[in-house]
Design a protein around this nucleic acid. Structure first.
Length: 243
DNA sequence: AAATGGCGCAACCGCCCAACT
DNA sequence: CAGTTGGGCGGTTGCGCCATT
C-alpha cells in the first residue's frame, strides 16, 4: 500500500514563510481554528501544505512562543531531560514552556552537543549572541520576534477566543502518548485544558518536580565530572569520543 | 574588500500511530 | 476488523549570516 502524499505538492509553495502568509494563517486560525490542517491552507487561501502550516503555527506563530537565547537553566533542563527521555523533543519541550520541540532539537544539535563534547568549556553562553536575523530573500521578517512587533500583532487579543485551544492539545497529545512508556516521569500527566495561567504554574511545578527528579545532578560540580557523566548517560556509554 | 567555510535556524520529509469510516 | 486519513514527531537538509583568512 502506497501512502498518498500528505498534500498535493504541485503548485504548493515551499521555503520560508513571508509576512503576508503569516498574517493569513494567523487571522484564519483566529477566526476558524485549526480543526483540519489538511484543508486549512486551501480554505485560508495559502499555497502551502497543511503540514507546513501546522509547523509554522506550532513553532512560530502560536501564542506563548518564547524566542531568543536559551537561558542556562533552560539548557540545563534540556540536558537533563535528554538524559531521561532521549531524543523525544516534544516531551522535552513540554517541560520548557514557550519552547518548541524544533527549537530544542536545534539547540541540542548545535550548542549542547558541542558543549558536551568539550566539557571544559565554560557553561555560559559559548554560543554567540544571536541577533534577530533579518530574513533572507524578502525583507519581511518571518520570525515572530520581528514580525509580531512590526505588525503590532497582539497575542493577548487572541487569547480567549474559541479557536485558541492549541496549548492543551499540543502538549497533552505528547504527554498522553508518553504515558506508560516512561512511568517514572510523573510530571508528564495528561494536562487538562490549559490557559495562560498554565505557564507560570507549570514553570513552578516543573521546576519543583524536576528538582526532585534530578537531584543527583546537583551532586556534581560544574566541571568535568558532571559533563562527562551527562555524556555517558546520554550516549548510553557505548561510544565515547576522545577527550 | 573579497572570498570562503562554518554555524545556526527554519522548514521539509517520511514514518508512526491514533482516530475514523 | 481492515483500510484510510490526518496529526504528530524526529531526522535531515538548505540557505543566509557571520567570522575568519
Amino acid at each position: 500500500m502506497v501512502r498518498a502524499p500528505c498534500c498535493e505538492k504541485i503548485g504548493l509553495k515551499k521555503g520560508l514563510w513571508t509576512h503576508e502568509e503569516d498574517q493569513i494563517l494567523i487571522s484564519y486560525i483566529q477566526k476558524h481554528g485549526h480543526s483540519n490542517w489538511r484543508s486549512l491552507p486551501k480554505q485560508a487561501g495559502l499555497l502551502r501544505c497543511g503540514k507546513s502550516c501546522r509547523l509554522r503555527w506550532i513553532n512560530y506563530l502560536r501564542p506563548g512562543i518564547k524566542r531568543g537565547n536559551f537561558t542556562n537553566e533552560e539548557e540545563e533542563t534540556i540536558i537533563k531531560l535528554h538524559e531521561k527521555l532521549g531524543n523525544r523533543w516534544s516531551a522535552i519541550a513540554a517541560n520548557l514552556p514557550g519552547r518548541t520541540d524544533n527549537e530544542i532539537k536545534n539547540v541540542w544539535y548545535t550548542i549542547l552537543k558541542k558543549r558536551l563534547l568539550k566539557p571544559n568549556q565554560p557553561n555560559s553562553n559559548t554560543r554567540k549572541v544571536s541577533k534577530p536575523k533579518i530574513k533572507r530573500s524578502d525583507s519581511n521578517s518571518s520570525t515572530p520576534t520581528q514580525s509580531e512587533q512590526d505588525t503590532g500583532l497582539n497575542y493577548h487579543e487572541m487569547k480567549g477566543t474559541t479557536t485558541l485551544c492549541t496549548y492543551s492539545s499540543d502538549f497533552s497529545s505528547v504527554t498522553a502518548s508518553d504515558e506508560g512508556k516512561n512511568m517514572d516521569i510523573e510530571s508528564f500527566e495528561i494536562m487538562p485544558e490549559i490557559d495562560e495561567s498554565f505557564w507560570s504554574e507549570d514553570v513552578i511545578n516543573s521546576e519543583e518536580t524536576f528538582q526532585e527528579k534530578c537531584d543527583y545532578a546537583s551532586n556534581f560540580d560544574d566541571g568535568m565530572d558532571f559533563w562527562y557523566d551527562v555524556f555517558i548517560r546520554a550516549g548510553e556509554s557505548n561510544e565515547l569520543p576522545e577527550f
